[in-house]
Amino acid sequence: MSWTRRSPAALAVCALLLAAAGGCGTSDAGERKNGESPPAVGRLLDDTDEAGRPYREVRGADAPEVGIEVQPDPSGAGWDVRLTLRDFRLSPAGTAPTAVRGRGVARLFLDGRPVAELRTPEHHLAAGLVPRGTHQVTARLYADDDSVWAVDGEPVERTADITASGSEPTATTSPPGTGIRTGGSGSPGPGGKAS
């Protein structure tokens, strides 16, 4: 009997302690603490991607980086894409639509056409998506609120060239490095801007 009489009091004390300590659960950088909104990340620009998503400008020191490697599938059934990420983590499905520094999704483009949204660093491009010829595969980083991570007004992205022919296809790698804009030979990337 004494246990049931103390239970409401014990629960009330626990609730007060939890409220004073900031609540239950885990917190991540930029997520809500004590009911407060996360701090603003970067600055939204007037520039947008081809789908109308705004660029979110961050300083170079705070910017994520992406590298892309595209290799022919050993079975000849397409292309294996692998991303290398620095200062960036891919969000799982169901993540709140809030811009948090260093987090979001990567979108994959083939010759400027969107082909996939990536939540893991690996993807398989089916052979049927890549016709004969030389093509550009671009990985661009987005915040969870659908804004495009950008530095100096340019999207954070990397591009690799691939060539599909009747014989063996060839590919290139664009690792992350000091430059975070479109890689390649200076031709426009998916956003229509030259590298």
Rank of each mutant, 00 (worst) to 15 (best):
5 R>Q: 11
5 R>G: 00
5 R>M: 07
6 R>A: 10
7 S>A: 15
7 S>E: 15
9 A>D: 12
11 L>V: 13
12 A>K: 13
14 C>L: 14
16 L>T: 10
16 L>K: 06
17 L>D: 03
18 L>T: 09
21 A>F: 04
22 G>A: 02
23 G>L: 05
25 G>L: 00
28 D>Y: 11
30 G>Y: 06
31 E>D: 14
32 R>T: 15
33 K>A: 11
35 G>W: 08
36 E>I: 05
38 P>E: 07
38 P>G: 11
40 A>P: 09
43 R>A: 14
43 R>D: 09
44 L>A: 13
44 L>S: 11
51 A>F: 06
51 A>R: 10
53 R>E: 14
53 R>C: 12
54 P>F: 02
56 R>C: 06
58 V>A: 04
62 D>F: 03
63 A>P: 08
65 E>K: 15
67 G>N: 07
68 I>T: 07
69 E>M: 14
69 E>L: 14
71 Q>T: 13
73 D>P: 05
75 S>N: 04
76 G>W: 12
77 A>Y: 00
77 A>G: 09
80 D>L: 14
85 L>R: 03
85 L>N: 02
85 L>P: 05
90 L>S: 02
93 A>H: 07
94 G>M: 01
103 R>L: 09
105 V>Y: 12
111 D>S: 04
112 G>A: 10
117 E>L: 09
121 P>W: 01
121 P>N: 14
121 P>M: 01
124 H>T: 11
125 L>P: 03
125 L>Y: 02
127 A>V: 09
128 G>Y: 03
132 R>V: 15
132 R>Q: 14
133 G>H: 11
135 H>E: 00
137 V>H: 00
137 V>W: 00
140 R>F: 00
143 A>Y: 00
144 D>A: 13
144 D>P: 01
147 S>P: 04
147 S>I: 07
149 W>G: 01
149 W>L: 01
152 D>W: 10
156 V>E: 06
156 V>G: 03
157 E>L: 12
157 E>D: 07
159 T>D: 03
160 A>M: 09
161 D>S: 12
162 I>C: 05
163 T>C: 06
165 S>A: 15
166 G>W: 12
167 S>Y: 07
168 E>R: 13
169 P>E: 08
175 P>R: 06
175 P>A: 09
176 P>G: 02
177 G>M: 13
177 G>D: 08
179 G>H: 10
180 I>A: 02
180 I>L: 11
184 G>R: 01
184 G>S: 03
185 S>Y: 00
187 S>R: 14
188 P>F: 00
189 G>A: 15
192 G>V: 08
192 G>K: 04
194 A>F: 02
